[in-house]
Design a protein around this nucleic acid. Sequence first.
DNA 1: TCTAAATTATAACGATTGGTCTACATAATA
DNA 2: TATTATGTAGACCAATCGTTATAATTTAGA
Lengths: 192, 192
Amino acid sequence: MKQKKEGKRDLIIKTASQLFQCQGYHGTGLNQIIEESGAPKGSLYYHFPKGKEEIALEAILLMKEQVLEEAQGDLNKKDSAVEAFQFHIEQIAAEFDKKMNMEGLPIGLIASETASTNEKLRCACQSAFQEWQSLYTDKLKQFGYTKEKAKELSIAINAMIEGGCILAMTSESGEPLRTIAKQLPLLLKKEE
Amino acid sequence: MKQKKEGKRDLIIKTASQLFQCQGYHGTGLNQIIEESGAPKGSLYYHFPKGKEEIALEAILLMKEQVLEEAQGDLNKKDSAVEAFQFHIEQIAAEFDKKMNMEGLPIGLIASETASTNEKLRCACQSAFQEWQSLYTDKLKQFGYTKEKAKELSIAINAMIEGGCILAMTSESGEPLRTIAKQLPLLLKKEE
DNA sequence: TCTAAATTATAACGATTGGTCTACATAATA
DNA sequence: TATTATGTAGACCAATCGTTATAATTTAGA
């Protein structure tokens, strides 16, 4: 009952999330979401009466949660800030080396294509970025950085990862992200 | 003659370039390009018989050239790598503070939304990134970095700027880019 | 078992999309 | 001026888009 109810709706969100990361909001049509999720078209509007935008808002939440979860896990595995963030970025890089699944750009793609035309989606994306950056800030503070510095670095790291994912997608390789990870010892160097 | 010939065609490319940076390839329709450029629809297919993709390829070249020109100019104005790149990034940040014009994401947006579905566009974007990175590499070498280090840093800087533009668009402010510029002294610190 | 609610199937809709085509207009050249 | 080359206007097309609506089917609960 409850399991089946959550199934189709969640399947749509999950599939939409993946497609939006790879092709963007405008480049992904509802028919493709339906086909790839296996969900019925009648269900789409039943579950999401406000249509495509509503699906996108849910997809953005899912992207945010997924990255939060992965980042949390990765950042908890190491004892220093440099190692932790390098590990996290290298995990992302590894995803781009798998030829089977095309990896995408979480949040950043849908954010940049809709920022100027859809205020709801822009706000949802901004919220997601803020949460990611809060996690990074908290982690950096735990590693001994001042609140101010942690805040700045979380923005820089977020930008680097988003930009790195763009380069990875464009070059079809995780290499740019690994290059970025390699610069972290300097970027995160604590000043005396 | 030649002036008028270049006029409409270039106007289409310029307008398309701007719209693709703000809304992406799929989020921009040909009718909007025509309306905003003032060019005639008959001319669109006259000048670009291969259609939308052909316009996009030209738009990508223009984006590349515009950023190359700006970066070249900015980077030539300062005596140290840190100052030069900070200046360049701060110039970009300032563009996002102008409320009149919505600023976009050159190359990165069209790259990320088409990387998995359009090989020609992906390759054109990859080419553009390579040229930007080559300029950064050359400049860093001039400032005394080893070839190896210069190459790595050019990738990291490119990623930071692209990612920073995404954050700027999403937050409707140049502030994330200024925060990024502030991290450059450490990132570009020369190791002894 | 029956009833109500939830979900699905499917056709249709209006709008927009990128593209084609033809006649006409304008500019350039001899 | 006449001819050629270049460019424009605007109608049309098929396909796709996101959405609506209704009937049918399935599920859940009493």
